[in-house]
């Protein structure tokens, strides 16, 4: 089954850019991604630029409305994702728990729709 792990965290939570802890976190991301690949469960995964770079659009009656900013102004924002291919929920949860951000943010795991 395919699962999307959506990585959320508050902007000021966790290690801040430029600190040694931040470097360590990047290294941790690097090594878990390698592990996911090695175990054959990774389809893809990436981090996102921060929410200040977000643009949200909607189309109503053929008119496009463009808004500067994320879809919802919440404390915790989507910061990245992994797309996994796992046997079951238990397996994907085991991998999701290794994502470095779980220690200060949250990871939401959702199965992909099957057609």
């Amino acid at each position: 089954m395919k699962y999307m792990a959506l990585i959320y965290s508050a902007e000021n939570a966790g290690p801040q850019y430029g600190t040694p802890e931040f470097k360590q976190m990047l290294a941790d991301y690097h090594s878990v991604t390698e592990l996911f690949e090695k175990d054959g469960v990774l389809i893809s995964g990436d981090g996102l630029q921060d929410v200040n770079t977000a643009t949200t659009i909607s189309v109503r009656n053929g008119k496009t409305e463009t808004i500067d900013g994320p879809f919802a102004e919440t404390k915790e924002q989507l910061g990245g994702y992994y797309l996994f291919d796992c046997d079951n929920l238990d397996q994907v949860l085991k991998y999701a728990a290794m994502i470095p951000t779980v220690k200060y943010g949250r990871v939401e795991v959702r199965p992909l729709m099957e057609y």
């Binding site: 089954m1 699962y3 796992c86 046997d87 079951n88 929920l89 238990d90 994907v92 199965p111």
Partner: peptide, 14 residues
């Protein structure tokens, strides 16, 4: 069914 909670016993460490 949809989230793939499988019908198996949990692994030993869990």
């Amino acid at each position: 069914k949809k989230a793939g909670i499988s019908y198996v016993l949990p692994e030993k460490d869990n």
